[in-house]
Structure formats: structure tokens, C-alpha cells
């Protein structure tokens, strides 16, 4: 009886996982379909859509914009996020709970509203839409997530190491760069990767903030989607999934390998 219920739960779980991954697998498979249409049936195996993709200048330009935007967002959001997380982890001060809430609050503001608000504020300041607006906007969207991720990682670092360095004669700055920062590095990486992904993936706010003529990968795909899914989009999806899933997985595997070897 108990076993039967358990099997039922297991089957249910497997079905939910299939629901989550089947459509993604379909995109990955269709990227290699030689048919000139983006859907079924599968007519044969071909790399032609990847070749086509590499020749599509609009997509390459969008990819470059997205990567630069994501990298800059990662730098800004991670810098701000680490400073804030340090304050939350290392110090006790009055109003800490309130401050934590304020730092997380942007997550709870609907992104559409956040986008319109910033856009109207810029309009009032007579600042036109620009790459800079996208950068600031993406950074503020990523910031709460970076704070949460970094804060969770920082809590695990013991202060004894820093105190040892200080007692051995290092000044605070030396201590930070020789002890604290290397210990924080995994947190920095995790935060930066998260910020990059959030920026790279954003479409809701980006549609409002981008200047006319500037496309990121998601807005480019969105624009190409009007008629149907073209096979190039499948190929692009394949490439994007390889980057955004492959890079963190490799980073994780490398970190694990590295840790095992240093132990």
C-alpha cells in the first residue's frame, strides 16, 4: 500500500519533469531539422540553420548587444550587491530588517510597472532611451537576486581568517584583498553569473527601454516570431541553451574538481 502511493508520487513527479523539459528538447531537436519550416515533420539531419544563423547579421548584432549588456550589468549589479550583502552579513545595525525588505522590494514590483516608471522618469529628465538606460534598468532588476545569492554564500565564510590576518599585522585593505576577497570569489562568481543570465534573458522591461533600432537577443526573437517560428530561431535557441546552461554547469563542475584537488 505504502509502496503503491510512493510509486504514484514518483510517476507524477516524472510526468511533471517531462512537462518541464519536453518542449525544450523539441527545440533542441528541431534545430537540426533540414526542413525549410520551423516545425514538424522532421525531414532530415542538417546543420544548415546554424550556417544560416551565423550569416544573419541582425542576430549577430543582437547577440553582441546582449552579451555586452549582460557583462556590464553583471559588473554593476555584483559590485553593488556584494557591498550590500557584506553590510547585511557582517554588521548588526538598527533597521536591518527594513533595509533587507527594501533591497528585495524591486522583485515585488511588477516588471512592466518598473519599466514604465523608469521610462517616464527619464522622459521627465528629457533623457532619450539608450544603452545606458538598459544597463541601469537591468542592473536594478538583477540587484535583489545578487544580494540574496551573495548573502547566502557569504554567511558561510568565517571571520576567524580575517581576524588572524589582522593580528598578523595586515591592514584592513590588505586583509580584504589577501583573505576576504579570495574567500568571497565563489559568491562573486555566483552573483555575476546570475546577473548576466537575468540581463541576457530579459524581455519584459527591455521592450520598453531599448532605443529604436537596438535589439537584444530576446527582442530580436520576439520580432522574428510574428509569423511563425523560423528554423533559425530553433538554431538560435540551441546556441543560447548551450551557452546559458553549459557555462554554469561547466563552472560548477570545474569548481567541484578544483575543490577536490585542493583538499
Amino acid at each position: 500500500m505504502k509502496l503503491r502511493v510512493w510509486t504514484l508520487l514518483k510517476t507524477y513527479t516524472i510526468l511533471v519533469y517531462i512537462f518541464m523539459f519536453a518542449p525544450i528538447v523539441v527545440v533542441l531537436v528541431l534545430a537540426f531539422n533540414s526542413s525549410q519550416f520551423g516545425g514538424f515533420p522532421i525531414e532530415g539531419f542538417s546543420f544548415r540553420w546554424f550556417v544560416k544563423l551565423s550569416e544573419n547579421e541582425a542576430i549577430i548584432r543582437a547577440l553582441r548587444t546582449s552579451v555586452i549588456l549582460g557583462a556590464c550589468t553583471a559588473v554593476i549589479a555584483t559590485t553593488l550587491g556584494i557591498l550590500a550583502a557584506l553590510a547585511l552579513v557582517r554588521y548588526t545595525f538598527r533597521g536591518k530588517d527594513l533595509i533587507t525588505t527594501v533591497l528585495i522590494a524591486p522583485v515585488l514590483v511588477p516588471e512592466t510597472v518598473l519599466a514604465v516608471g523608469l521610462l517616464i522618469f527619464m522622459r521627465w529628465l528629457h533623457v532619450p532611451r539608450s544603452f545606458g538606460l538598459l544597463l541601469l534598468g537591468h542592473s536594478i532588476i538583477a540587484l535583489p537576486f545578487v544580494v540574496l545569492v551573495v548573502q547566502a554564500r557569504l554567511t558561510g565564510i568565517r571571520r576567524d581568517y580575517e581576524e588572524a590576518a589582522r593580528s598578523l599585522g595586515a591592514n584592513p585593505l590588505q586583509t580584504f584583498f589577501a583573505v576576504t576577497f579570495p574567500l568571497m570569489l565563489p559568491a562573486v562568481f555566483a552573483g555575476a553569473l546570475f546577473a548576466f543570465t537575468i540581463s541576457f534573458d530579459n524581455i519584459t522591461a527591455t521592450i520598453f527601454w531599448r532605443p529604436s533600432g537596438m535589439e537584444t537577443v530576446p527582442t530580436q526573437i520576439f520580432g522574428m516570431l510574428r509569423n511563425s517560428v523560423s528554423p533559425e530561431i530553433n538554431a538560435l535557441g540551441f546556441v543560447m541553451i548551450c551557452i546559458t546552461v553549459g557555462v554554469p554547469l561547466m563552472a560548477g563542475a570545474l569548481a567541484r574538481y578544483y575543490m577536490r584537488n585542493t583538499k
Partner: peptide, 14 residues
Amino acid sequence: WISFIIRTLSWIHI
């Protein structure tokens, strides 16, 4: 880690 727009449009393939 997988693009929101790709995950969304993937249902067109279903």
C-alpha cells in the same frame, strides 16, 4: 538558466 522566450515559444512546436 534557459531563455524565457525560447521556453515560451517552444509550446508553438507542441
